[in-house]
Structures are given as structure tokens and as C-alpha cells.
Design a protein around this nucleic acid. Sequence first.
DNA 1: CCATTTCATAGAGAAAAGTCTATGCACTAT
DNA 2: ATAGTGCATAGACTTTTCTCTATGAAATGG
Lengths: 301, 301
Amino acid sequence: MRHATFRQLEIFEAIARHLSFTRAAETLHLTQPTVSMQMKKLADSVGEPLVHQTGKRIELTETGQALAVAARDIFTVLERFEDDMAARRGLRRGRLRLAAVTTASYFAPRLLGEFARRHPGIEVSLRVCNREQLIASLNEHLDELYILGTPPEDAALVARPFMENPLVAIAAPDHPLAGRHRIGLAELAEQPWLLRESGSGTRKAVEKLFAQRGITIHPRLELGSNEAIKQAVLAGLGISALSKQALDLHPTGQFAILDAEDCPVRRHWFIARPAGAPHSAAASAFERFLLDSRPTAGTTL
Amino acid sequence: MRHATFRQLEIFEAIARHLSFTRAAETLHLTQPTVSMQMKKLADSVGEPLVHQTGKRIELTETGQALAVAARDIFTVLERFEDDMAARRGLRRGRLRLAAVTTASYFAPRLLGEFARRHPGIEVSLRVCNREQLIASLNEHLDELYILGTPPEDAALVARPFMENPLVAIAAPDHPLAGRHRIGLAELAEQPWLLRESGSGTRKAVEKLFAQRGITIHPRLELGSNEAIKQAVLAGLGISALSKQALDLHPTGQFAILDAEDCPVRRHWFIARPAGAPHSAAASAFERFLLDSRPTAGTTL
DNA sequence: CCATTTCATAGAGAAAAGTCTATGCACTAT
DNA sequence: ATAGTGCATAGACTTTTCTCTATGAAATGG
């Protein structure tokens, strides 16, 4: 391991991202054989194979996965050092790689905007994906900070709640349930439901709501985005439940918020980072920003 | 920075530890000119000088300090990766570098023993120094975890309390104050005090106790260890205050515990790590061990 | 089953990394 | 002031890194 070079880690990280030697070579402006050669050397100094070729496809071995994590951590450390140096020269700068689940994109930009205003030198990037992908990214240390609903129990992460995230049941305004009071969960479950894809946090929350009563709901339609769900609800295709934030930009009355049992469901948004991973000053600043500027509800994980 | 090598960082880290090129060369089995040469290259790729020679002495520039931190972080990441690989091969192993303030050495070994028993593969090392040195180490990322009394406000660290740490005032059993009830702080302050060196956490705690009442105490003797203080107290040279744990191994009655105002002072032991630094699985395990196995009192920082 | 895609191997050359010995220079301590 | 300590510089050598072009081999997908 002592004979590995930064360059090799850089190349390997590109491979891990693209899962392709050729693609990695392109992005780094190298030829493919160069990449192959370097990876051979890297695997030699690690002492174990890093990738596993099955036909055309390439996949990382477990060791490869771990090495990709280490490589990203090392680059985070180096970036932190360089930010530090820049700060000493008076240039306040930094980069913050952030990932958020789809639904968070309804409020995250406003937060980012305010943060960017207060920290002009910091360059913020936001990647949006669904909960499942986000947790995979987190385990791979792809980004520094992650915004998500309830964090998973099993993952190695540090998560803190920073904002309310109520889940509300909605229907079209002319739906028979609209205006009804204290709708029972059993009755609600009989409705045709419109749900996000599995892997979505919102879907998990809906399923959990009913699972507490031993009810399993069967979606009538499975839709890949909150916007698609809203369209379908307005088209009278069924009812659904969404994070309240997803409705913020709509005039009251456009959707009927159902007064059902246990609704709205009380949840929170969490800011998380992988346990044990290094993080930049910019990341610390953003965490502090979230936890200070918003009234936090609930306690630390 | 892309042209730096791991080797160069390794050499630089040795220099940062020894503050000497020659000494670094010796520990790495290199000649001194080799070290000089490598450092020149490293400084070139960083773009700024890393050390500053004033006569015989050498000191790190600010950039050098930051680079030493980065280098240690990188080695922590690599070690973590190697532990990970070993774990996958069935060898559960790992290293945990721990630092603790002097007074913690009265109970830390027992904790470490229990931890080592539960995690046989993990190699634990404990460095002992006073509070001031410990905080310096923490800022330099010299170790992964730190056990100390009340953590400083200004340092970039994550600290959590895991154990009570009462401060008790003591005197020789035949001291006039022994057996007296509710001794006033003013009267206590008039006694000849035996204090630890400045830079000690225990000393700071004593000073703070009196400072709350606007009293400044002047030590009659300044002693470099808790053991020396105990000896002096028994010799009738004065009174002092120590962490209760420092008295654990002594039979009751050997020292008189004074029933003074605000005593015992309620404090806690904290487990801390530098913010933003990577840490190994072993370190996470130790943190969890401390926080789970002991009844924690108080809340997160 | 053939064209295409993808990674591996071979051979080769320039650059750099990494180390040494020998020596010079600057400051310190006695 | 003189010896000693500690880093810098010069010159030289070997090894490794890093990259290329050209070509081979394996698997896939229409």
C-alpha cells in the first residue's frame, strides 16, 4: 500500500465512478491501456484484486469498494488542506458537495441560497436522488453531507434533525373524502393510492403509517416523482400522501388535505454525514447553519 | 499538490513530530540530505514553505501545521482501509490511538482493559499528558480520541460526556477543617493551597470554583502530579482538590474529604475527537463502548 | 455469427522519484 | 573563538512511474 500514488487513487476513483476503464481514461485524458496498467500496479500494492470483470461489465470487489471510499476520503482531506491554505491567503473559499432526496429539493435550494449568501466563497453543489440511491452514496462517501428523511438504523452515519417534515394525505378538491373529519385509516387504505417508486422515502413513510395498523396498501399507480403524483391526484386517479413542503408553492384549495387519523404524520428532515469520514470546514459550516438557523425539534440521534 | 507522494507525507509527518530533519532521517533510516531533498520537493508541490528555520531550531509554518494534520488524516484513512481489508479476511484487527489527561489515568486503564477484552484484535495505545498538551495534540490530530475534563469552547472538536467526574476538596485527616460542616469558600481560600501546574485541568477547575465568588487563590506549592499533591497533603503542607477518581485506591479515612460550599463540584469526563478528522472503526467502537456501558449524565455538546 | 465494445498485454521511452556520498554554510553553546 | 550541531546543495546513480502506440482476447448484442 505504501507504493500506491495519488495519481493511481485518482484514476481508481474515476473507475469507481464510471465503472469503466475506458470512460475513466476519457475523463482523465488518458489512454485506456494506461489506466489498465496503473490499476494493475495499484492492485499489486494493495495485494488484492480491486475490480472483477464479468463479460463487458466491470464491478468493484469489496476491497475495491473500500478503497474507493478511502480514496474519496483522502481527496476530501487534501481539499480541506487546500481550502485552508486559501483561507490563510485571504481567499475564503471551499467546496461543499451535498446530496438530498428528491422531496428535499422543494426547500433545499432556499437553504442553499441563504447559506451561499452568507458564505460567498463557498461553492455548493447539490445532487438529487431518491432515498435508496442517497443511502448508497452515503456508504460510498460520494458526497460530504446528505439531506434525508428518517435515517436508516444500520448505516454508519451521524444524523441530526434540523426541520419539521410533516407527511400529509391529499386528494383532489372534489374528492368525496375532502372535508370529511377524522377519516379512519382503514377507510383511507381502501382508496386507490398513488405511490412513489419503492426506494422512495415518502413511499416508505406511507407504508409505515398503515403497517402500524397491520394494513398493507396496494398502489393503483406507481409514479416516479412527486410532480407526477400531484398531476395524478388532480386528475382524480386516486389519493396520495406527500411531504408538506412539496405543496408549498400551490395555492390553498388546489389540493384537499385530508383530515385522517394520525395525519399529518410528524417527521423530520435530517442532515447526515458518513461516520468516520473526514469533512471540510465548509461542511461543518453548513451543518452549523442548518442546526442554528432553524428551530430544531427532537433530539440528536 | 498533485505531485506529492505518500512517501513525502510520511517523511514530513516524521519531521513534524520530531521538529528535526536529522531526527526524522534517523527514525526512517534515511540520510539527512534525502530528507532535505524530499521536503524541498514537497514544499514545491504545495507552493509554500512548510518549515521555518530559526538558527538551530526548526518550526512548522502555518501551512506546515495544516499539512501535518492532513498527512495524519490521510494515514488514518489508509489505516482504516487496511483494517477493513484485514477484517474481510477474518482477522479482526485495528489500532486505536488514545490520549488522556493525567487524572484520567486513574480509571482509563480499567476501561481500556474491558474494551480490549471485548475486542481482542484491537491494539490500543494510551498517551498521557496534561490538559494543555492534550488540546494541542487534538488540534494537530495526533491521536484519534481524547479523554478530558470539560472540553474547551474554541477548539474544533466533537465531545460527549460519558462519566461523572466530581472534584473533591481534601486535607490531611488531622487537619482542623476535617469534620467541619459547610465550610465557606472564603475560609477555604485562606488555607495554604497545593495546586497542579498551570495547564492542568484540575487546577483550572479549582480556580474556576473560587473565581465564581471573585476569589483568587495563590498556591503555596505548585506540584506536577496528583500523587505529589497527595503526599504533600498528608505531610500537612496544605489542602487541595482532586478528582474523586484519584482517591479511589486509598482507604477511606486516609484523606479527609472537606464538606465545603459547592463541593464536590459536579463535572464530567468527556470523550472527544477533532471535528472533521477521519476516524477508524476501532475509534467508533470505543466511543460507543464508553457511551453505552456507562450511565451518561448530561447531554451532548 | 460478426461487428463492436471492453479490458489486457507488450514494448518502449521520457521523466521523476528516491536514494546515496561529499561538502558547504549558519548558528549555538561552551 | 572553536567545536559541534543541523540543514542545504551538488552530483550521481538506480529504480519506478507514467505515459504512449499497437495489438490481442473475451464477451455481447443485434
